[in-house]
Design a protein around this nucleic acid. Structure first.
Length: 576
RNA sequence: GCCGUUGUAGCUUAGUGGUAAAGCACUGUCUUGGUAAGACAGAGAGCGUGGGUCCGAUUCCCACCAACGGCUCCA
């Protein structure tokens, strides 16, 4: 803990130092806030004229200069009036000071060298001695809205990296470099899985190998869900605007929809989610209480006009499929159905050995329905989460406009959080669509619906697992499972025979008899992360056996039939 | 959408105010190789798109498009 505090104080002190340096170089700058973050710190500035990363050397140099003069931090408590006077021309600090007054908190100024900042403390005792000039580095520049609100002015944020030693900084930079090699966008191209084209921003093209992966995940999902009593449907990708008006999406979501205008009186919305059509299907059915839970799943393609700056390879697409289902239940079934779904999550994520967290999203500012049922629903979800025994976080106001939700959160290679699966409770849409089932007493009642996805979107999930496995997928997902490599043309016939046997038995196999050296062909196969290499020379040809190199082990003298059964077992077990 | 960066052969990159260079990949020939790049040769881009400045622009300026890192958003 001691150490962590020191690192925290070091980073915090550096944020002050950055502000001091920027202020010296650009005196008209207004300083705002500068917190400590993972691996470093940042400071937000309102600059008179724009700067870029090209200015970093200059700023870093100034920081090192000033650092020499920073022997200590001194603290002074100020009255509200004194503080306001000091930061008179700075509306950001003024706003912060007002906030402190409202909350009746002490106002303290910390000074080091000639730089004074409004601050609640947490610095090094002697920065010039404790900060190593080669253990910090300015990292990136970015725009950031004042107080995180899009309506406010955009400030310039400078990110810095900071550690106690140069080695730790270098270590972190190396780690980041390694993580960048696992980037799904890079691996996706190198492994021939997918591509993008500028005429369809955010919409992946699935290449043959990528589509194999896609279909495998889909099949597994389909088989498992059939066992669990899910019934799959498919519905139109395009519906008239009327439908989106009934569901409420036209009001809440229209700007993010692709719209097809077929003439003044014929406006269609391309579906950004499946729920309204799932409501239509339910409504068309005669449903008894005996049919509940009624689970209608589907994986239709969705389109959302995500804002250009938010697109991110497979992790944020404009075109994607969800492994969706709408589970119609009674209020009494909420907790048990949530438990069912969370069990599915546990099983699915377990197969890949993925780490995830649950997050509860509560009532947003713009919500439909009455507060009372929202609170009841939120409490039900809390109960389920508590019972799950897994740690979870709460994102206040992060629920869907129609109900609270539990999300599954995962990290990508660079440590960024992504929402994967989600289970959203909804009292609103069944009412809007006037859905009914017949209860025991013969009366019509309105069901509750859970919108749920396990993978989330297939696209995002694949992005995450590409990074998770660094492209070296388990056998059942590998686009190419075996490569057969005859050493020379002399073994061509036997190699061809082995290749066909493997292929005909359903193993995804490639034969590489190209005119390249064996070393080269092995290299190619390994770079493509093919799990098994079968090398065939005279030895194997004469004994009618194979030499097989897997990722972990090398097997000699195995027959083709034995190899096939070994691989089939590994595939069906979905071994990692 | 906003802030910053980037955009040169299929990929990764070099380069320049006077009409582009390399490695890998590709094609061909030779080589028939025992576990991460055999040799040689050939073909391939007019430098994201559109304007402007200039005798002349891939290089400078403007706009747009796309990608990347953030911010915001994420039903």
């Amino acid at each position: 803990m001691e150490n962590n505090d020191k690192l925290h104080n070091l980073r915090h002190s550096l944020a002050h130092l950055l502000a001091a340096a920027v202020l010296e170089i650009y005196p008209e700058t207004k300083v705002t806030i500068g917190p400590v973050i993972e691996n470093g710190f940042y400071y937000d500035f309102d600059l008179k004229s724009p700067i870029s990363e090209k200015d970093f050397p200059k700023i870093e140099k100034k920081m090192r200069e000033i650092l020499k003069t920073w022997k200590e931090f001194t603290v002074e408590e100020k009255t509200f009036e004194e503080a306001k006077k000091y930061f008179g021309g700075n509306e950001y600090k003024t706003e912060l000071i007002d906030g402190l007054k409202d909350k009746n908190e002490k106002i303290t100024f910390y000074t080091s060298g000639s730089f004074t900042d409004l601050c609640r403390g947490g610095h090094l005792e002697n920065p010039s001695k404790e900060i190593k000039t080669d253990a910090f580095k300015l990292d990136r520049i970015a725009g950031a809205y004042w107080r995180g609100d899009e309506k406010n002015k955009m400030l310039t944020r400078i990110y810095g990296l900071a550690f106690e030693t140069k080695e730790e900084l270098e270590n972190y930079l190396n780690l980041r470099e390694e993580a960048e090699k696992r980037d799904h966008k890079k691996l996706g191209r190198e492994l021939g899985l997918l591509m993008f084209h500028e005429t369809a921003p955010g919409m992946p093209y699935w290449l043959p190998k990528g589509l194999i992966l896609y279909k495998e995940l889909e099949n597994y999902w389909r088989v498992e869900h059939e066992k669990l009593g899910y019934q799959e449907i498919a519905s139109p990708l395009v519906n008239k605007a009327e439908l989106w008006k009934i569901s409420g999406h036209w009001d809440h979501y229209k700007d993010d929809m692709f719209i097809a205008n077929m003439g003044e009186n014929e406006i269609y919305g391309i579906k950004p989610m499946n729920c309204p059509n799932a409501m239509i299907v339910f409504k068309s059915m005669q449903v008894s209480y005996k049919d509940l839970p009624l689970r209608l799943s589907d994986t239709d393609r969705l389109h959302r006009y995500e804002r250009s700056g938010t697109l991110n390879g497979l992790l944020r697409c404009r075109s994607f499929q969800q492994d969706d289902s709408h589970n119609y239940i009674t209020e009494e079934m909420i907790e048990s159905e949530y438990e069912n779904i969370m069990k599915i999550c546990k099983d699915f994520y377990g197969i890949f050995n993925l780490e995830y967290k649950f997050r509860l999203g509560t009532r947003p500012e713009s919500f439909m329905g009455d507060i009372e049922s929202w609170e009841k629903a939120e409490q039900a979800l809390r109960n389920v989460l508590e019972k799950s025994g897994k740690e979870y976080s709460v994102a206040e106001g992060d629920g869907a406009f129609y109900g609270p939700k539990i999300d599954i959160i995962m990290k990508d290679a660079l440590g960024r959080d992504w929402q994967m699966g989600t289970m959203q409770l909804d009292f609103q849409q069944p009412k809007r669509f006037e859905l009914e089932y017949t209860d025991k007493d013969g009366k019509k009642k309105t069901p509750v619906v859970i919108h749920r996805v396990i993978y989330g979107s297939l696209e995002r999930f694949i992005g995450i697992i590409i990074e998770h496995f660094a492209g070296a997928f388990p056998l059942w997902l590998s686009p190419v499972q075996v490569v057969v490599l005859p050493i020379s043309e002399k073994q061509g016939e036997y190699a061809e025979k082995v290749y066909k046997e493997l292929k005909n038995s359903g193993i995804r196999t490639e034969l590489d008899a190209s005119n390249e050296s064996l070393g080269k062909r092995i290299r190619n196969a390994k770079m493509q992360k093919v799990p098994y290499l079968v090398v065939i020379g005279d030895k194997e040809k004469d004994s009618e056996t194979l030499t097989v190199e897997g990722r972990k082990e090398k097997t000699e003298n195995i027959t083709t039939l034995d190899l096939i059964s070994k691989l089939k077992k590994e595939i069906s077990e979905k071994s990692l």
